[in-house]
Amino acid sequence: MVPIRLAIVGLGKIAKDQHLAAIEAIEGVELVAVASRNASLESVASFHDISELLASDLQIDAVSLCTPPQGRFALAKAALDAGKHVMLEKPPGATISEVLALDAQAEAKGLSLFSTWHSRAAAAVEPARVLLAERTIRKVHVEWKEDVRHWHPGQDWIWEPGGLGVFDPGINALSIVTRIMPESFHLVRSELSFPENRAAPIAASLAFETASGLPVTAEFDWRQTGPQTWDIRVETDEGPVVLTHGGSRLSVDGKDQIVEEDREYRNLYKHFVSLVGERRRDADFSPLIHVADAFMLGRRQVVEAFDD
């Protein structure tokens, strides 16, 4: 199989921490270029931006967009206009309308568009989905609490409109819950805590209901220090089903079932290779829709200022 010739656009923290190693570890894709204003790689062609990349003579098949969500629409549109398959880091964009437009463009051109949700690729997510399809669920509670200073130091874009604030990690939890739940759910209450000096929330308290009226609650907070919390607890008639460590570990009825190292991004790129080979799209925007609903229904509370 001839490997996909891939370019990364935006060589920032997430690309360096996750994407580069994942691409190196799997077959079917070859990194041939990067486009970044602030970084380059000695081993591949480097460009200042996507316009310079697409105007060059370098042959590429696909781009992986690892830039902040604000402004990503123009980058993805340019790549699709040039006939390139597109992989979107999460969240897929800054608004619902723009990601729907990208999906429609990809469909019209017969190109692959992959809206990635890396937490869905964690080891315990699919086993939990299969298990819950066979159980009677009573309620779901999510706690997703981490230290923003550790995970996003100095990244001011994340506090601007479109950067999502605490929903940048919180959307990971929503991506898992939307995958493992046998029925859909919708938001009924949202309370958002905004630092007085920031345009995006640092904490959120959410309440959802499933189509049959079961409660789903979530607590997101970016102020947690010490051990980090990425837990989803599903109460069923048969006993609790608990996902921890961001979806990589599963406990069923109090007994550990799956404990596995992080291979999320390897799984994402394997799937992207398959999508491109078959010219299919995978564009589920439901986690982003839930975040948009949280802002629309959100009762705003101003809290103390936050600085790195």
Rank of each mutant, 00 (worst) to 15 (best):
I96W: 09
H141Y: 05
G163A: 05
P91I: 09
E160N: 10
A78P: 01
K139E: 06
G110P: 07
F114L: 11
Q105Y: 10
K109D: 01
V142M: 11
G110R: 13
S115I: 13
A173N: 06
G165P: 08
L113P: 06
E98C: 06
P153G: 06
P169R: 00
K139C: 00
R135I: 00
L131I: 12
P69T: 08
E134L: 11
F73V: 09
A106Y: 08
G154I: 08
G83Q: 11
H141W: 09
A79P: 02
K145P: 03
D81E: 13
G93F: 03
K109L: 04
K77D: 03
V148T: 11
G110T: 14
G170S: 12
V125W: 06
G162C: 04
A94I: 09
H152E: 02
K90F: 01
E126N: 12
H150S: 11
A133Y: 10
E160R: 15
K145H: 13
P169I: 12
K90T: 07
D168C: 12
L88M: 14
F167Y: 14
I176H: 00
A76G: 14
P153W: 12
A173P: 04
D156F: 05
H85V: 08
K145M: 13
A78E: 09
V148Y: 12
G162R: 08
L131E: 04
K84C: 03
V166C: 10
A78C: 02
K77Q: 12
E98I: 10
F114C: 10
A133G: 15
E143P: 02
T178E: 11
P127E: 03
I137M: 06
V148S: 01
V166F: 05
L111Y: 06
P91Y: 07
S115M: 14
V86Q: 07
G71P: 13
D103H: 15
H85R: 04
I96Y: 06
P127W: 08
E89N: 13
A123I: 09
E107K: 15
G170V: 10
G93I: 10
A173S: 14
R149M: 00
G154H: 10
K77M: 01
E89S: 09
R72H: 10
G83K: 10
Q155S: 11
G165S: 09
K109E: 04
L113A: 09
W144N: 02
D103S: 13
L100T: 14
D156L: 11
A104P: 05
E89C: 06
L75T: 05
A123H: 07
F114W: 08
A104Q: 15
K109M: 03
Q105P: 05
D81R: 13
V177G: 00
P91G: 02
L100V: 15
G71H: 10
S175Q: 03
S175N: 05
I158Q: 09
F114A: 07
S112K: 00
W151M: 04
R149N: 09
H152G: 01
I96Q: 09
F114M: 11
H85A: 05
A94M: 08
R72G: 00
G170F: 08
V166M: 00
W144V: 02
A122H: 13
W159G: 01
S119T: 15
W117R: 07
A101D: 15
V125P: 07
